[in-house]
Design a protein around this nucleic acid. Structure first.
Lengths: 148, 148
DNA sequence: ATAAACCCTAAAGTCTGCTATAGAGTCAAG
DNA sequence: CTTGACTCTATAGCAGACTTTAGGGTTTAT
């Protein structure tokens, strides 16, 4: 019997537009727990958490359809065999690991840039490590095919 | 005097289409080092590395315009003040850290799913940890506004 | 009891990031 | 010296992820 949220309330809390929420519903990503007699959407705390997952996954580069599939592992578990789940999660784990690796590399480049930079008003070409972003060694390995 | 690559060669090596490379040029992301008299594009090893950076950044959810800006720190260093660079990199570092955090959380959820799952032919609702993806604790903190 | 604020659907429009098409020039191999 | 693979520009088209518009109900605060 916890509080249910109207679409505008959820939107505000989650920093998305109400239109986006309605759009996600058409895409089968997030449906409100219930509707009022007049058709108003009411979202539960679970719905809110599901939305957080969607937003975080999106932020790190997953497409909505991918996210839908990730979520379906939870939602429709009886529809999948263990074998399927094992294979799919295995693939996704490697994908996530590659993304983490790329981000760590990028962070290093940004860190060295940030530290080398005096932060003053003068032109940034005195920051000799600006080239850190272009270091040949940085991203040279594991140029895996893009899963798209 | 190292080898220069024609567009088709770079495309094949980098696993993108030639059209994508021409498109990136129109967007100011990647221009070939030189052109032949007849207009053929010729890409250097530096260009190739720049492309790798673009592709990796894209994979982890940066928009092309963001990537352009990241690259401009390197390319047009004399156009930026140290102050600017310091501020911008500071922001981006925090953004990257948040992405890494999200991915690590996601990896944990996928890992527990993967391990709990027997991998057999039976229905996956026997994998009781399927709920790991929906753990309330997972993404509940740091619901930062999306930088868009 | 009425106006402001909020919600609904349906459909069209927008922006990003490509992808495809058309028409033509270039280049390497036989 | 021609044929087939490759390249060029310019333009149109497309998929994904929203956003806006139009027209109309619902709630709630005064």
């Amino acid at each position: 019997m916890t509080k249910l949220l109207k679409i505008g309330e959820l939107a505000k809390l989650s920093q998305v537009s109400v239109e986006t929420l309605r759009f996600y519903e058409t895409q089968g990503l997030l449906s409100p727990k219930t509707r009022s007699d007049s058709g108003y959407r009411f979202y539960s705390v679970d719905d809110q958490q599901r939305l957080q997952f969607i937003l975080h996954a999106k932020k790190v580069g997953f497409a909505l359809q991918e996210i839908k599939r990730l979520l379906s592992l939870k939602t429709d578990s009886s529809q999948h065999t263990c074998e399927e789940v094992k294979n799919y999660t295995g693939v996704k784990i490697r994908e996530v690991e590659a993304k983490i690796h790329d981000l760590q590399t990028m962070k290093q480049a940004l860190d060295s840039l940030h530290q080398a930079c005096c932060g003053g008003k003068e032109s940034a070409d005195h920051c000799t490590i600006l080239n850190s972003l272009g270091d040949p060694e940085l991203f040279s390995r594991h140029s895996s095919a893009n899963a798209h």
